[in-house]
């Protein structure tokens, strides 16, 4: 397919789900990875198999595009009852179209850590289909930090059966255009999901965190908290949707998005959506956008802390709650460390 033909298929701002993230406009003909297949690197613990096999057909725009370059996917399988000691690492998702299928079988537990760090001037399109069988538990940690001229779209579709648990943490430093989309489909009752994310954007970076959670069975528990910081001329987009169907009674779902704007040219776009058909549910959403609290800054400066340090500390505290519930202390430290570095650089500490 000619690059121009590929670009024609990219989503653009006249499509509601992409109104703030116009992929078509962001991508040039000559960008590397537009028409190639991704070659990721896996580190899998014992008992976890990684093979290549026929992929399932895709039902979303970027997945269908990936499909036209490869009908194969990287299949990762966690067997029934397995509790892998080490996480599965996925790296080198530098450019090209990548298709992944993950199956966590009944009662199994696994942790996946994905490092999205691409090559300058590239294009990466990732489609992940994750299936959580009955009683399975999955922890996903996604760290994304691309060069400021790279475009990355990563779409994860997660089908969760009865009694499954999902914990997902995303830390994003953006790119020229980054879209991290999570689509969670509840296919059974008693699902527990925590989907948190933090973004820190400087320069002209752009991150779009989009999620779509669809529940059709009762007694599910969903918590989503996305927090971010935007400075320079960067742009943050948050689109969250809870779709609670008629049979999803006793759903308990909360969504929050909070953004800190640190500069005159920063931009934040948010759309926390609810579509509710079941009456006996508790669904809430909140969204705030603002700057650091002046009185808190003053308090700290009065105690001898420099303005830059005070800003960094307050921002760090603001973002920290996103990763509070992480069991893996080392991982949490690592993520907070990356946040502190960014803050140090941004605030000149």
């Amino acid at each position: 397919m000619l690059p121009s033909a590929v670009i024609e298929k990219l989503p653009h701002r006249r499509m509601e789900a992409w109104k703030w993230t116009d992929v078509r406009r962001a991508v040039r003909d000559e960008v590397s990875g537009l028409s190639s297949v991704m070659t990721p690197r896996f580190t899998a613990p014992d008992g976890v198999s990684v093979t290549q096999g026929a992929a399932h057909p895709s039902d979303h725009v970027m997945g269908r595009l990936a499909q036209s370059f490869s009908d194969q996917s990287w299949n990762i399988y966690i067997p029934r009852g397995a509790k892998a000691a080490e996480p599965v690492l996925i790296e080198d998702m530098n450019r090209g179209h990548g298709r992944f299928a993950v199956m966590v079988d009944e009662g199994a537990e696994a942790t996946f850590v994905e490092y999205h760090k691409g090559k300058a001037g590239s294009f990466a399109n990732i489609e992940q289909n994750i299936h959580l069988a009955k009683g399975a538990k999955l922890i996903r940690i996604i760290v994304q930090d691309d060069p400021d001229d790279m475009t990355r779209i990563a779409t994860s579709c997660i089908a969760a059966a009865e009694g499954t648990k999902l914990e997902q943490y995303i830390l994003s430093f953006g790119g020229a255009l980054t879209r991290l989309e999570t689509r969670l489909y509840g296919e059974g009752a008693n699902i527990e999901a925590v989907m948190n994310g933090a973004y820190l954007l400087s320069g002209s970076k752009h991150t779009d965190m989009t999620s779509h959670t669809e529940l059709s069975h009762p007694d599910c528990y969903i918590r989503q908290s996305v927090k971010g910081v935007v400075t320079d001329k960067a742009k943050a987009v948050f689109q969250g949707k809870f779709l609670v169907r008629r049979d999803a009674q006793h759903t308990d779902a909360e969504m929050r998005h909070d953004a800190l704007m640190l500069s005159e040219r920063a931009e934040v776009r948010a759309k926390p959506e609810l579509e509710i058909y079941a009456d006996d549910v508790a669904c809430a959403h909140g969204n705030t956008i603002g700057a650091l609290d002046d009185s808190a800054l003053f308090y700290m400066r009065q105690r001898g802390i420099s303005l830059a340090e005070a800003k960094a500390l307050l921002t760090e505290a603001f973002l920290a709650s996103v990763f509070d519930d992480m069991d893996d202390e080392d991982m949490r430290e690592s993520l907070m460390g990356q946040i502190k570095n960014w803050l140090g650089a941004s605030y000149g500490v």
Partner: peptide, 22 residues
């Protein structure tokens, strides 16, 4: 249980001095 209630709020801020709460 036969009806639906939906919310689609759009929030767009281009200034750090704005405070938007929803």
């Amino acid at each position: 249980n036969d009806c639906g209630a939906h919310t689609v709020p759009y929030v767009e801020s281009d200034t750090p001095t704005a405070q938007f709460e929803h």
